[in-house]
């Protein structure tokens, strides 16, 4: 019996882009393009199985072995520190982790800085390195709203083009980590499905090297 390689892809534009890379690597799965409500897509001939999951969940699927490999943003890896191998920088979905705030905001070090973010751990680490006393406000979305309404002084979030910030009279104060999509692998799967994982990694590397 051939063993399937389970691949967790992040739902959305990034996932579709990455699937195309897997396809070019020779691991196509035509049924994935059919417009239906199926959750799992298989290509028996290539022994590969894809499934779409929420981007922030990819690392969990891989760490726990439900997926052998997966693609997720560096932001997720930094935030959750999953115990996985990080095999390749796919050089897509490129953006930065940044501090942003109102244009006229000046940091007063005498006060505790109120930081709104989805990425609690990343924000904590960043400010503890600076030795800055902060209060963290964990939000799940629309982070930009927080400084506008005075809920927080600044936000720590992913910035791609900065258009949303600009339109809301906010600006990037500092970009501190570059972010991009990474190919990750479960530590145990890497040993037992080594050949196929190495093959995919090699082919994806060839594709990213020209980027």
């Amino acid at each position: 019996m051939t063993k399937f390689l389970n691949v967790a892809l992040p739902k959305g534009r990034l996932g579709e882009k990455v699937y195309a890379m897997f396809e070019r690597a020779g691991f196509e799965c035509p049924s994935i393009k059919e417009n239906n409500r199926k959750l799992v897509f298989e290509n028996t001939e290539k022994a590969v199985r894809y499934f779409w999951v929420k981007p922030s969940d990819v690392a969990i699927y891989v760490e726990r072995g439900a997926a052998d490999v997966g693609v997720c943003g560096k932001d997720i890896l930094l935030e959750y520190q999953p115990d996985v191998y990080e095999l390749l920088d796919l050089k897509t979905g490129v953006c930065s982790m940044a501090v942003a705030g109102k244009k006229d905001f000046v940091d007063d070090r005498n006060k505790t800085l109120k930081v709104a973010t989805k990425f609690t751990n990343i924000a904590k680490n960043y400010y503890s390195k600076l030795g800055r006393d902060i209060d963290i406000i964990h939000l799940n979305g629309s982070i930009e709203l927080a400084p506008i309404l005075g809920l927080s002084d600044v936000i720590v979030d992913i910035v791609e083009t900065g258009t949303t910030l600009k339109e809301n009279n906010l600006e990037v104060k500092e970009k501190f980590v570059p972010i991009s999509a990474r190919l990750i692998a479960n530590k145990s799967s890497f040993k037992f499905k080594n050949q196929v994982i190495e093959k995919i990694t090699k082919s994806l590397r060839e594709q990213t090297d020209v980027l």
């Binding site: 072995g65 115990d83 530590k187 145990s188 799967s189």
Partner: peptide, 24 residues
């Protein structure tokens, strides 16, 4: 990639895996 804490370990370091169990 088996990197035990070098403050305590030296020389050989090893990890064992079983097919189907996600971590060492």
């Amino acid at each position: 990639s088996v990197v035990n804490d070098m403050k305590y370990y030296n020389g050989f370091a090893f990890k064992g895996f079983i097919d189907g169990i996600p971590s060492g």
